[in-house]
């Protein structure tokens, strides 16, 4: 079985009851009780004022988590390729467009249209950070975390480069919410490098497996993991929070999962 090995250098986290990685670490270690609360999304300071105000949930998630991970590793966002994986794009915007297209006035606005592409958040990311490096924008429904992690590791290992990986999901309003009930916004970012460095937090080795995905013991955290695709990465974050060596199975497709080993 082939294994892809790399080194995690930075972590960003934002979600219901998770305001950043340091706070999240304490919860995932079990030092603090998990307190579910609506996700608090900071305004993206790097965007020009007008775009900052208009920015949607997924753009705010992307910038907040990505920059947290990169800043904590002491790296420059402008130099890093990014892999962005999400089940859907801007849900509010998608709903507004579908509503207009079903009405007598189909003249949707240009801004709504360019914000409707799945790679809108990646586009704003490169504009905000000045990164001309590649961005790879993926969709894999419930398998987004695993698909993004695999793509990231192949970039790191094959193209021998540092990559920032972002898995971000947000909610649709009704009526789409009932058809795709993602409860809240959740984003996780990992900076992953091909070699060990002074900023290495953990070594990660990933391979495909038929084993079932690990669940989380805490019922509220498990609910997050199972209802938000990006939160399928929580068992990995828990391992990283605990430190030391851990083996875990992360959810991916119905036909295959990811076996992940982490070590200091």
């Amino acid at each position: 079985m082939h294994t892809l090995t790399a080194y995690i250098e930075g972590i960003g986290l934002l979600g219901p009851g998770f305001n950043n990685w340091p706070d999240g670490q304490a919860v995932l270690r079990g030092q603090q009780t998990y307190q579910p609360a609506r996700t608090v999304l900071p305004l993206p300071a790097l965007l020009p004022a007008a775009e900052r105000r208009r920015s949607g949930v997924i753009v705010r998630l992307t910038l907040a988590t990505g920059l947290e991970a990169i800043n904590s590793a002491g790296l420059d966002a402008a130099t890093l390729p990014m892999v962005f994986s999400a089940s859907g794009g801007d849900g509010e915007n998608c709903h507004a467009i579908c509503e207009m297209l079903a009405s007598d006035d189909r003249q949707i606005s240009p801004t709504r249209f360019h914000n409707s592409v799945h790679n809108a958040a990646a586009g704003y990311w490169s504009i905000a950070t000045g990164a001309m490096s590649p961005s790879t924008v993926l969709g894999a429904f419930d398998a987004c975390f695993g698909a993004g992690l695999l793509e990231t590791l192949t970039q790191v290992v094959v193209d021998d480069t540092r990559v920032v990986f972002l898995a971000c999901d947000s909610s649709y309003p009704e009526p789409l919410h009932s058809a795709r009930p993602i409860p809240d916004a959740f984003g996780v970012a990992l900076v992953i490098a091909p070699q060990r460095s002074p900023c290495t937090l953990a070594k990660i080795a990933v391979s495909l497996t038929d084993a079932d995905a690990d669940r989380l013991a805490d019922a509220a955290l498990e609910r997050l993991r199972s209802t938000i695709p990006a939160a399928r990465g929580l068992p990995l974050l828990r391992g990283l929070a605990l430190g030391g060596g851990h083996r875990m199975v992360l959810d991916y497709l119905d036909s295959t999962r990811l076996e992940v080993m982490i070590k200091p």
Binding site: T136, V137, A147, L150, T256
Partner: peptide
Amino acid sequence: GLTGPAVVVSSA
């Protein structure tokens, strides 16, 4: 009937 890696790239 494929069971390996599968993904969509959606960058417009």
